[in-house]
Design a protein around this nucleic acid. Structure first.
Length: 726
DNA sequence: AAAAAAC
């Protein structure tokens, strides 16, 4: 019985007001009541003048709330009702205010303003949001759009904004507010061109597809909505509902507790013998650059026979060891092989070729020329091309061509099962891949959707219900939807693993295996990575058949446009040295080993007046998406990230990568470094280490086959200012 | 250590 408060408030009564349970009748005045029986009553504090609790009070008391007062939300973990809440509910929104702050409360200080960007100009269009009835339209899977408006925290507060004043505690916010005005333009996202730049794949001079942005035919949704089916009449409304997506992020909350101290020093691995079982580059079998020879290699079978490591050698590759696995024996393609070859020559159809040109890829890069014919031929393919060499198009374009050939766009029936799957290790990467894949797919009438966590699932699910052909996503949510019976992978005939070697890492391998087992047996699988090695052997063995292995010749340190420097520093100087390095014009990406340190460092830089933000797994997806976008758009010059940003992420014009903590693995080094020096531009990688790490660092660089200078540095040294002036 | 799920 609702009026029986006993059970519902057991905890509250104990903690707050023992007399409460005897209390007054239900239906008493709202919070701040003068009724002694009501929980809002505060005899000692002139209730009348206390209109409303401020954030602190709410935080302090939120745990004591009686669910019977707010039956709808009491312990509601999900926001289920929220979506149904009638417009009227909005006037109640004050209640919501409490909730938002709550989520972050434990880590109030960490909660760098990032989360409230949206507040001001973002929501100008709220008024027209009215058409709630058209909600079905939500289908539009505008995933990453949602990202912009992280928390409904801002939502409710809208009308109550005045009360913001009480929120005092967030003193760290100041600079943010200043930026905020410019947020206004965010909503329409006309500035999105930046998105297009994200396409990781294209190196070279093609990074200029930004000009392509104004694709008026699908302006805003370009990247996100898997379902941007034109046939969906609701399109128009979309712009008015930009907001919903972000609600979900609450799930990230618990993670905030990590106040673990940033560990910058790891015990000691130094004694691990440097493994050099990798054959020297030169020893690799002679490349057959001959196209004809390559074409009939289908019967060579040679690659796969010695592809797997010896069984007894496996234990050597224990997790945690940074070892260089044997290279895959690959067919190498050189740039010279590709001269004069067009995408059409490789077997792609007219629509796709045209779309690629629009994307800024008029002719194939070596890795694309190498893998496209084999993918079209239906073979399993392993592809290795250095960071930014065009791997996304290398698998995406032929994959789409194949899907189209087999019954392609004719099959538009609702709830058709997806026929292709692209798996990525991080959500940002999945998003980015979709930005490349979707336009190509759309050019031939195929549809894509993103399936990744951290955002509400309903848009993803409804996209699936409408029917999509290509799924791009991360492992967790994909498995989740499969378990819910909302996603059926049994018709998937092409599966791509991007960053395949990483997907074989501890923690990723098993989910990936489970997902692959759900796809059609003996279907086509494509594995790509810049650091593809025999670490993928277990996957290859179970899921691939006689794979063709491709790489691009001549991709070594000598051909790199990246300059590497190691600074030997005192640990206590680290922050000030970073501050000095970052005092410059270009975009800088800083890698930290832990989320907490990334957050802390970003805070420190901001405090020092640097426009900086962070990217790591402790942020909700909305903030992740937005913070990355802030670097892309140039709103900040500095992004401090964990290794979540190490792989695949493409941001134009990052010219300096700073490793505030050295990476554990040589592969991580290569991927982090690969965020710069893209598109043939020059870039610099600076790694800060205490001098006792020098030996380990040298070993790591050896494994990565990188030459680097080592310089002892203290704050203010010329070596540092020189770097800052690059 | 980080990443990846949570209507």
């Amino acid at each position: 019985m609702p009026t029986s408060k006993k059970p519902a408030v057991g905890r509250a009564a104990k903690n707050y007001d023992p007399s409460y349970s005897k209390g007054g009748p239900k239906g008493a005045p709202k919070g701040g009541s003068k009724s002694p029986g009501h929980r809002g009553y505060r005899a000692d504090e002139g209730a009348p003048k206390k209109q409303r609790w401020n954030a602190d009070e709410r935080a302090a008391r939120s745990g004591e709330r009686s669910s019977s007062d707010r039956p709808a939300y009491g312990d509601r973990p999900a926001y289920g009702n929220r979506t149904e809440r009638p417009a009227a509910g909005r006037s109640e929104r004050p209640a919501y205010n409490d909730r938002a702050p709550r989520t972050d409360r434990p880590a109030y200080n960490n909660d760098r303003n990032n989360d409230r960007p949206a507040r001001g100009g973002d929501r100008p269009s709220y008024g027209d949001r009215a058409p709630r009835t058209d909600r079905p339209a939500y289908n539009n899977d505008r995933n990453d759009r949602g990202g912009d408006r992280p928390s409904y925290g801002d939502r409710g507060q809208r009308s109550e904004r005045p009360s913001y004043g009480d929120r005092a505690p967030r003193t760290d916010r100041p600079s943010y507010n200043n930026d905020r005005p410019s947020y206004g333009d965010r909503a329409p996202r006309t500035d999105r061109p930046a998105y297009n730049n994200d396409r990781p794949a294209r190196g070279g001079d093609r990074h200029s597809y930004r000009d392509r942005a104004p694709r008026t035919d699908r302006p805003a949704y370009n990247s996100d909505r898997g379902g941007d089916r034109p046939s969906y009449g609701d399109r128009g409304q979309r712009s008015e509902r930009p907001s919903y997506g972000d609600r979900a992020p609450r799930t990230d909350r618990p993670a905030y507790n990590n106040d673990r101290p940033a560990r910058t020093e790891r015990p000691s691995y130094g004694d691990r013998p440097a493994r050099t079982d990798r054959p020297a580059r030169g020893e690799r079998p002679a490349y057959s650059n001959d196209r004809a020879a390559r074409n009939d290699r289908s019967n060579d079978g040679g690659h796969s026979s010695n592809f797997y490591p010896d069984r007894d050698s496996k234990p050597k590759f224990a997790a945690g060891d940074d070892v260089v696995l044997e290279r895959l024996e690959a067919i190498a393609t050189t740039a010279a092989d590709v001269v004069g070859v067009t995408f059409g020559d490789l077997g792609l159809g007219g629509n796709i070729v045209r779309e690629l040109a629009l994307l800024g890829a008029p002719s194939p890069f070596p890795i694309q020329a190498a893998t496209i014919p084999d993918v079209l031929a239906g073979r399993d393919v392993l592809g290795r091309g250095k960071t930014g060499s065009g791997k996304t198009i290398a698998f995406a374009a032929p994959m789409i061509e194949k899907l189209m050939e087999n019954n392609g766009a004719k099959d538009r029936k609702m709830a058709r099962k997806p026929r292709a799957l692209i798996l990525a290790p991080t959500r940002e990467l999945a998003l980015q891949i979709d930005r490349t894949v979707q336009p190509i797919a759309r050019s031939v009438g195929l549809f894509t959707t993103q399936i990744y966590g951290g955002v509400p699932q309903y848009r993803q699910v409804s996209a699936l219900q409408r029917g999509v052909d290509i799924i791009i996503g991360t492992a967790g949510r994909i498995e989740d939807l499969v378990e819910q019976g909302r996603l059926d992978l049994s018709e998937v005939v092409i599966t791509v693993l991007d960053e395949a070697d990483y997907m074989c890492d501890l923690g990723f391998l098993e989910p990936v295996q489970r997902i692959l087992r759900l796809t059609k047996k003996n279907s086509q699988r494509l594995l790509f990575s810049a650091t593809l090695d025999k670490g993928v052997a277990s996957l290859v063995k179970e899921f691939l058949t006689n794979p063709a292995v491709h790489e691009v010749a001549g991709e070594d340190q000598a051909s790199s446009t990246i300059d590497h420097k190691v600074l030997l520093i005192e640990h206590r100087d680290k922050a000030s040295i970073i501050g000095q390095l970052v005092d410059r014009q270009g975009k800088t990406l800083i890698f930290s080993r832990t989320r907490a340190y990334a957050e802390q460092l970003a805070d420190q830089l901001e405090d020092a007046g640097v426009k900086a933000t962070s990217l790591h797994g402790d942020l909700n997806q909305a903030r992740r998406t937005r913070n990355l976008q802030m670097l892309t758009s140039g709103r900040v010059n500095v992004l401090v990230a964990t290794d979540v940003a190490a792989r695949g992420i493409h941001v134009d014009d990052i010219d300096l990568v700073i490793q505030a903590d050295m990476p554990d693995e040589y592969k991580t080094y290569l991927h982090r470094a690969g965020r710069t020096g893209r598109a043939g531009k020059s870039g610099t990688v600076v790694t800060l280490i205490p001098k006792q790490r020098r030996r380990r660092m040298e070993d790591l660089l050896d494994r990565a086959e990188i030459d680097s200078s080592f310089t002892t540095a203290t704050p203010g040294d010329a070596s540092i200012t020189a770097l800052a002036n690059l």
